[in-house]
């Protein structure tokens, strides 16, 4: 299978590193088939949940005959139902995602690799995977489905994406929220460099869809540490605007603003039970993803 996966965006090492893990939704998911995720409905699966009185019409297979024999009363055994979920992979294809780390890996490429690995994991655990990528043009939307073929098509689509132009990130998130019809999981890959207030409002729209959000915040080291000296002309790669300033003089203020922005984002997401996973392209994907998944599994 690996040979047929699109090269460049699929990291076999990362995929193998997370192969034994599961990405489980913290929220209940509305699926159609049994899966690993908690379902809002009681069903007849493995996990015993409770007894209830028999009412005519119940399936006699779930009648507890032992209790009937001992007590002469009819009880139906209920089990917790698990289900599969629909997972959306949201990829920010704005031009700012093309900024590269010192090692030459761009934020966008890193996002694609992470999305590919997690898409593979989700598909492998039987969930539906969908894709929503936004760039300067119309967003690309692939509805969530299961199956290898669908996964391949998503990966192939990811491989074709190119970062370009400006993206109104809140607007894109709102659009995504409108497309989510029932509970599920949303994996967002972006630098989330957008004014915090608007960004948080858009994320809340997703949370209102009762989705489990995982924000993969991909920023370069330079964006985080601002390692510039002297006169620096900053160029907004999305709109082409430039600003010349004495970077040394604004460094402290930038670091403080960046810290405030990320902290606000983290708190807002945590308030709704979501996660923010800060990543730099300098990190090894094969270590970042397993570490996060393991930590998430422990907290479930």
């Amino acid at each position: 299978m690996q040979e047929s996966l699109p090269s460049g965006i699929f990291d076999p090492r990362a995929a193998s590193a997370i192969a034994d893990l599961e990405l489980v939704s913290r929220r209940v998911a509305e699926g159609f088939i049994s899966g690993v995720h908690p379902s809002p409905y009681y069903g007849f699966a493995i996990e015993f949940a409770a007894y209830r009185d028999y009412v005519p019409g119940d399936d006699l297979r779930f009648l507890d005959w032992r209790v009937w024999g001992r007590t002469d009363r009819h009880y139906i055994k209920q089990f917790e139902e698990t289900t599969n979920l629909s997972c959306f992979i949201f990829v920010d294809c704005s031009a700012s995602m093309a900024i590269r780390e010192d090692n030459g890996v761009s934020k966008f490429h890193y996002a694609l690799m992470a999305a590919g690995a997690l898409g593979y994991l989700i598909s492998r655990q039987g969930d539906n995977v969908g894709l929503y990528s936004v760039s300067a043009g119309e967003p690309d939307y692939i509805p969530p489905k299961g199956g290898r073929r669908h996964l391949f098509s998503i990966l192939a689509h990811l491989a074709r994406l190119e970062p370009a132009g400006a993206v109104l990130l809140p607007h894109a998130l709102n659009s995504l929220a409108e497309r989510i019809s029932h509970r599920g999981m949303v994996l967002l890959f972006s630098d989330f460099l957008w004014p915090t207030g608007e960004l948080v409002q858009a994320l809340k729209q997703l949370f209102r869809r009762r989705s489990d959000l995982i924000l993969f915040e991909i920023m370069t080291s330079a964006e985080q540490l601002f390692p510039y000296d002297g006169m620096t002309e900053f160029e907004d790669v999305e709109v082409g605007a430039r600003m010349l300033t004495q970077s040394t003089l604004v460094r402290d203020a930038y670091l403080q603003a960046m810290h405030d922005h990320r902290e606000s984002l983290r708190r807002a997401v945590a308030e709704y039970g979501g996660d923010v996973v800060p990543i730099t392209p300098a990190m090894s994907l094969a270590s970042v993803l397993p570490a996060y998944l393991a930590r998430r599994a422990r907290l479930l």
């Binding site: 700012s96 002297g230 002309e233």
Partner: peptide, 30 residues
């Protein structure tokens, strides 16, 4: 020093712009 500038692409222009505009007077005085 002003001519010897280096160009840096950034996605956080909104943040830098806000900082510079907020501190423009102080930076100029300094």
């Amino acid at each position: 020093y002003g001519l010897r500038r280096k160009r840096v692409p950034t996605g956080a222009m909104w943040m830098i712009r806000r900082i510079v505009e907020h501190n423009a007077r102080r930076l100029r005085l300094r």
